[in-house]
Simulated scan of single mutants.
Amino acid sequence: MIDEIECPDCDGHGFIRSPGKGSGERECEVCHGEGWRPMTADEQDAAAERQAEDAMSEPPMSLDEQHARAWAQKQELKS
């Protein structure tokens, strides 16, 4: 599992632009200018939950598979 994420505070840039003219940029305090930071416990829980949901979901079907399944269901209805 990925234990680092792109820092949402600085959008992965590592710096934050200060509002106003001539203010310049300052280093992001959350990621310390790296652009990436460790995930919080809540973020790790949410990522694990999403991963489990994805693993349980049915894999996507191609159009050929959808057509074959629909044809088989239609044949079952006829008999």
Rank of each mutant, 00 (worst) to 15 (best):
L63N: 15
A55K: 14
I2Y: 04
Q73W: 15
E34Y: 03
K21N: 01
G24P: 00
E6K: 12
W71P: 01
C28D: 02
Q44H: 06
E27I: 11
M39V: 08
E4V: 03
G33R: 07
K21D: 00
G33S: 06
M39F: 02
E34L: 01
C31A: 04
M56V: 01
D42I: 09
Q73R: 15
S79I: 07
Q75R: 15
R37E: 00
M39G: 01
M56F: 00
G22F: 05
K74E: 13
E27M: 07
R50F: 12
H32L: 09
A68N: 09
A46E: 15
E49W: 02
D9F: 07
E49M: 02
E58G: 01
E4Y: 14
E49T: 11
P38V: 08
M56S: 07
H67C: 11
K78P: 00
S62Q: 11
W71T: 14
G14A: 04
W71E: 13
C28V: 06
C7I: 06
A68M: 14
W36V: 14
M61H: 14
A72L: 13
D45G: 06
G14W: 04
A46T: 11
C7A: 08
Q51C: 04
E53N: 07
D11Q: 10
E58T: 10
A70G: 05
W71F: 09
R50H: 08
C31Q: 00
P59G: 07
L77W: 13
